[in-house]
Computed example of a mutant assay.
Amino acid sequence: MSTETVGLIGLERAEVNELEPRVACRFAAFEMMPKVQVRDQRLYLARFGAWDWTGPVDKVIFHGIFENDLPGIAALALWGGPCLPSASGLLDCRPRIANLARVRKVSRFAALPRSYTDAGTAFTTEVPSVAKWGEWHCGEGKERFADKWTPSEPSLIEPFLGGEAVRVTAIGDALFQLRLGGDDWKKSIHHSTAAHMPLDESLAGDVCALRDHFDLAVCAADYIVSPDGTPNLLELNHVPNVTQFPEIRAAYLDFTAKWINESPRAQPVRKVPRS
């Protein structure tokens, strides 16, 4: 077995168990966001409530969304070692509102006008709209409204669009398009009617551009395709669900195992000379 230590952050035990026999390294697995420390250019991880640091860690697989993970992701970016997806891409895409502001400069389909309102301010509109706040997904932190909205948190406001909700997921160069399902205007890949659908070449190109620009490798973009066929980007998911559909799960595990086995480990520490 290799002397490498790979930190797995956010993966479920089932996926960890399937990866273990496919790689030649030691795993340090954390289902929740660990404590992070970068010391002498080396990365150390520990579970909350403990000071038992695991490290140095040579590579990181990050696949989770946690309530207070932004400082830890920033620390991974400061470390600069091999991370899947890249820590800099995760950092760019973690805060929802900042994410969309950055994504709008890359996507071909992000012309939909967006508005913003601070917490405790009254926002008025003449068109049916959707307010989005917080960092959670799967329908949380969203509300449809008309006329007036007074948020308790900073909120993104966008016009409500009718049409088909779709997601294109990238696992490296493998692309999958899904039709999202739901019982009301909120759509999700977790609904029983969500299913695979043929890949649209224009959406595939858009997702690849986003994937490459943010160096994410694994990501997914959600769109509303209007009745006239016009796609409208809703958001870029930096940590998309990869376990709901067997084909996507298999592609993710194959890609992750290959990345672990073939990516260079963290570079040796270079000592700073004393003055």
Results as ranks from 00 to 15, higher is better:
T5D: 00
V6I: 15
G7C: 09
G7V: 10
E12S: 14
E12G: 15
R13T: 08
E18F: 14
E20I: 08
A24K: 06
R26M: 05
F27H: 11
E31V: 10
E31H: 11
V36L: 13
R39K: 14
R42E: 11
R42C: 07
Y44E: 01
R47V: 01
F48V: 06
F48E: 12
W51Y: 12
D52K: 12
T54I: 12
V57L: 00
V57K: 00
K59Q: 06
F62C: 04
G64A: 02
I65A: 07
N68T: 11
L70I: 12
L70P: 02
L70D: 08
I73Y: 00
I73A: 08
A74W: 03
A74H: 05
A77W: 00
W79Y: 10
P82Y: 04
P82Q: 07
C83Y: 06
P85I: 04
S86E: 05
L90V: 11
L91Q: 12
L91C: 14
D92Q: 13
C93P: 01
C93G: 05
R94N: 11
R94P: 00
R96F: 01
I97F: 15
A98Q: 14
L100E: 08
V103Q: 08
K105D: 07
V106H: 13
Y116A: 11
F123N: 03
F123P: 06
E126C: 05
V127E: 15
V130I: 15
K132M: 10
W136H: 06
C138L: 15
G139P: 04
K142P: 02
P151H: 06
P151K: 05
P154M: 03
I157Q: 03
I157W: 11
P159D: 01
F160V: 05
G162R: 04
G162V: 07
V168I: 07
I171R: 05
D173Q: 09
A174M: 05
A174Y: 03
A174K: 12
A174P: 01
F176L: 08
F176Q: 01
L178M: 11
R179P: 09
L180I: 02
G181V: 09
D184Q: 07
K186G: 04
I189W: 00
A194I: 06
L203W: 00
G205I: 03
V207N: 05
C208F: 03
L210E: 02
D215M: 09
L216R: 08
L216E: 04
A217W: 06
V218E: 00
Y223K: 03
V225K: 02
S226L: 15
S226F: 00
S226R: 15
D228I: 03
T230W: 01
P231N: 03
L233I: 11
L234W: 08
L234N: 07
L236P: 11
H238F: 04
H238K: 00
V239D: 03
P240H: 04
P240T: 03
V242T: 15
V242S: 05
T243P: 04
F245D: 08
P246I: 02
W259P: 10
N261R: 12
E262W: 03
A266G: 01
R270Y: 02
R270C: 13
R270S: 10
K271Q: 09
V272T: 12
P273S: 08
S275R: 13
S275C: 12
